[in-house]
Design a binder for these strands. Structure first.
Lengths: 343, 343
DNA sequence: GTGAAAGCGCTAACAT
DNA sequence: ATGTTAGCGCTTTCAC
């Protein structure tokens, strides 16, 4: 199917060039103590034979591979894509190549043990450092640096970049309150993630500020997916006293709410006010009001930090918070305040 | 920064369990000739020590790693994202994990030599097989299977999945002709890719069919990016006799044309008819007429084929063509035909 | 059923 | 400036 030519090793090159393996290795690693004559000769031979060093073997002996890893449970959802965009930019600007590792499904992943396994797999050998998206673990065993994206651990064992989840969510709920809403539903995120808890905490606090006590009926569990967003939105909207507004813990669940509302012939924002956390492109097209958290920027910053760590810098700041921004789209505000005050 | 605990090796496990390395290895690889007593004991020890096998070392000795690679020049553009979605789905359904390799920028990549280098790097050691997106090379040295996505080689050295570029483009141009257009501009794709040439060939043939000879002024080079799409669209539209319609070789360049038209206060489709190849979500939101090529499906199919190849199947078909579909959005057709016939 | 030993391709002392 | 040699952590004969 394709030329099975048994891969050529450093030995073959040495033999062909009539030198020892170590000399070839020296050339390969840009060491200086090689005469320019042999240097050129070896390089020529490498060209001719089409030699490429074996990653596995090389990784086993040397420290640096100019390769960093990005671990994601799944690469097919908008959040992942945004993170990758940011990381990709940092990679393009750098000397490193990127290896994105995924199992393709959160369900094939998700436990701390799994995470540790993948970390060991990559960082123990082939990568110089690792970026981990929304990890569950607070600490990892690893001999190369790790930076997490979107995970604010209480006492993190690694540097971390995330957005101001609490502040952003606070603003979102305050906004809905400012429109006159009193019954605001909440679709939660994955319980095990801190980001989700922070957003819930803000929901709680904003309501408390306004003197509204929590109504458990208006709080729906969720897991950051469209499917549950849809399911629980239906449930909320079918209550005897449905909420007049919903705050969804992320974009995906907001999309679910959107779908549910459409199906129930509720117009957004006329009949139902909706705000979602996150800033995927789709939101803009649908005129959804969102709390943008600059996901790509988080990926970019995390990668930059990782590079510095790999270079040997010791950074003071372990946690970096990137700002969020409430983006109100369309004519949401006016219509809603009219409706809300009328009710 | 994070616990630097020197990674535990198979030796450590052996020592702790009071057995030899080979016995541990046997357990690790599910060999049967181990007494269930020691088996359990070893597994326990592995748990306790938190041992994970070293990818590099393992790769060096064994054939299968349950890991496949996906090589992309850049993972931050919509086409890449679509491919990844498809591949991700296949991965989720499979026993394999995925490693996406990128340099973050086409410019850090692109030559056949580079491609071969990455192929050797991955396939020679850690991955069981490789998916390559839009490769330039027609052949690779590799001892593990390779499947390409979106590259119809004349005499491919590897199985390949791509869409019916020619047929789709033919349909697109015929459609524009059916609206009455006679001056149809073309924004080309990357010259070195066959997909681009096929789309151009169809443009040529469709015009010939209609008895229209090629006007070189209406043919703009391009490279599948938004930037060049924009630049050349401006150029085309500023001609003394501008085209009344443009066929862009892909979505990205179509977006560029879109931007240029907006800037020149040309409404689409009223003032300029535009069809782009590819099916990224943005196109739908902008009501762009497109030739959908089901990019994600290509990724999915390619991955499926790769899995079969790895399992040892020898496939007859080397090339799989997935259908394309002209999707006419909005009220494009009517408006255009009116304008075209009026002019 | 288990251990000893060879070696995968490479790098890094240590020699020369 | 170059060759020799000892492993890196693992799998895999081949003994026992």
């Amino acid at each position: 199917m394709c030329p099975k030519k048994q891969s050529v090793t450093i030995q073959d090159v040495a033999k062909a060039a009539g030198v020892s393996v170590s000399t070839v290795s020296r050339v390969l690693n840009g060491k200086v103590d090689v005469s320019s004559v042999t240097q050129e000769h070896i390089e020529e031979t490498i060209q001719q034979l089409g030699y490429t060093s074996n990653l596995a073997a090389r990784s086993m002996r040397s420290k640096r591979n100019h390769l960093v890893g990005l671990i994601m449970p799944d690469i097919a959802y908008p959040f992942a894509w945004e993170v990758m965009k940011g990381v990709n930019r940092a990679i393009a600007e750098s000397e490193y190549d990127l290896l994105v590792y995924t199992r393709g499904d959160v369900r094939k992943y998700g436990t701390a043990a799994h995470e540790q396994q993948i970390v060991s797999l990559l960082n123990g050998s082939i990568t110089d450092g690792l970026l981990i998206v929304a990890p569950v673990s607070e600490e990892f065993f690893s001999n190369a640096p790790i930076v997490s994206v979107d995970h604010l651990a209480v006492r993190p064992g690694y540097p971390s970049v995330h957005s101001t989840n609490y502040e952003g969510a606070l603003e979102a709920v305050r906004y809905l309150l400012s429109l006159g809403h009193r019954r605001i539903g909440f679709i939660s995120g994955r319980q095990e993630l801190i980001s989700s808890n922070r957003r819930f905490q803000a929901y709680h606090d904003a309501l408390a500020e306004a003197g509204i006590s929590l109504d458990q009926n208006l709080i729906a569990p969720g897991d950051y997916t469209t499917a549950t967003g849809y399911t629980y939105a239906k449930q909320l909207l079918n209550l005897p006293q449905p909420p007049s507004a919903i705050f969804a813990a992320n974009d995906q669940s907001a999309m679910g709410v959107y779908q549910a509302a459409q199906e129930m012939n509720l117009r957004i924002p006329e009949d139902l006010s909706l705000v979602g956390f996150d800033n995927i492109p789709e939101a803009a097209y649908l005129n959804l009001t969102t709390v943008d958290q600059f996901i790509a920027e988080m990926g970019y910053q995390a990668a930059k930090i990782l590079f510095r760590l790999i270079e040997g810098e010791t950074l003071e700041t372990k946690i970096q918070q990137l700002p969020t921004q409430l983006v109100i789209r369309g004519s949401c505000q006016v219509l809603l305040s009219e409706r809300a005050s009328a009710s």
